[in-house]
Design a protein around this nucleic acid. Structure first.
Lengths: 206, 206
DNA sequence: CTCAAGTTTGCACCAAGTGCAAAGTTGCAC
DNA sequence: GTGCAACTTTGCACTTGGTGCAAACTTGAG
């Protein structure tokens, strides 16, 4: 019997802690030395595990550095799932996104984003994170609305919502450079709402 | 003086031919043996170049296999740029996409897509291709409309259009498995138009 | 023909990534 | 607790990936 969410067993706690320390070590190293100026072995050493164990958790340094983006988007999905089922889809989307614009949740992702900026291999993993999230949203919508909706409609909707989230993050990073102060996070909220409004209005001429 | 588009020089022709033969060899090998069951050296050999030359063109086998997706999306961008500047943006988008739904243009991309299906490393490159195209569309929109438009609006729009294109391709591949017959391509056109219609209507309840 | 600039190749090297088996932990039943 | 089964970490060996470098080769221009 594996009780993962109920009572995390010692094994699970250890694994999570190891994973966490690897990611931390990876992002820190990237911040200190710059991406590409350290090896997987360096990360393993900094995290206090063997090289081999590092590769048990991640298939590359780049994947470890991008891990916070996956975590962030998993949280996004959870928020979406928690929205009441009667709510219109785009309302659920915007409410989920607004709940995410929160210091604690964003900090690791923001650091990983800053560190990765302009470095293709890590960026590719981040794009994968967005894409996987989009697929999971499709599944979540199906669970919620049944099979009544057209597949194309659902996929295009999920993809567009993710694109709006991504655009908001981009603009926000460009404006604020990942500043996590309350006023900066308010600005991100504003951007998110505005992007979804554009989407809702079918991008009617600005 | 480098005359690239005017009178391709011998050097340029050679480079393009080499590149082409590498991509072909890579996609063929992936089709025959399955992704991951061959090495960069195998590709080089099949393409008739040295291993070192292979790495002069691509930084990995996965990148070579994803190359047709980049080519396809570059063509997409060109179509978009050619649209008359007075046309509403979403009209330009749909017209550019419809022009792309063409056998000759799609064939290499379709093959690369089929071969890559479900293999993360190649998929990541393909996602990068979509993302880069989205960025280039942002630039193209700016060239066309000047700086009057809001940055968030432009990025969200470009990203959403790409998401609709991606969703259409996904649904089409799921339905038709990459069949390139005229009727199948007509179906893709239909999906593309329908996806952009959803976008235009702000995803009003189906 | 000749020279400068660009391209391919071989070689050497280090880092990435993986299979395997031995050693170390944890969970569970008694 | 004791012991056993299941899981995790580690070290080791080995192939492939990916890059710097210099020598050989090809192309463009005068």
């Amino acid at each position: 019997m594996t009780a993962s969410s109920e009572t995390p067993t010692r094994r699970e706690l250890n694994k999570a802690a190891t994973r966490q320390s690897i990611v931390l070590a990876a992002v820190d190293l990237a911040g200190e030395r710059g991406l590409g100026n350290f090896t997987a072995e360096d990360i393993a050493e900094a995290a206090g595990v063997s090289r081999r164990t590092f590769f048990n958790y991640f298939s590359s340094a780049d994947e470890a550095i991008a891990a916070p983006t996956f975590g962030f988007l998993d949280a996004a999905l959870d928020r979406f799932r928690e929205r009441p089922h009667g709510e219109p889809l785009l309302e659920s989307a915007i409410n989920a996104l607004l709940g995410l614009a929160d210091h604690e949740l964003m900090a690791p992702m923001a650091q990983s984003f800053i560190v990765a900026h302009g470095h293709d291999p890590v960026t590719r993993f981040q794009l994968q994170a967005f894409d996987e999230c989009s697929e999971k949203i499709v599944t979540a919508i199906r669970e919620r609305e049944g099979d009544s909706l057209d597949e194309l409609y659902v996929q295009a909707l999920a993809g567009s919502v993710m694109a709006c989230g991504k655009a908001s993050l981009h603009v926000w990073f460009a404006e604020r450079g990942g500043d996590l102060s309350p006023s900066s996070i308010d600005r991100l909220r504003e951007l998110l709402m505005s992007a979804i409004e554009h989407l809702k209005s079918g991008f009617a001429a600005d």
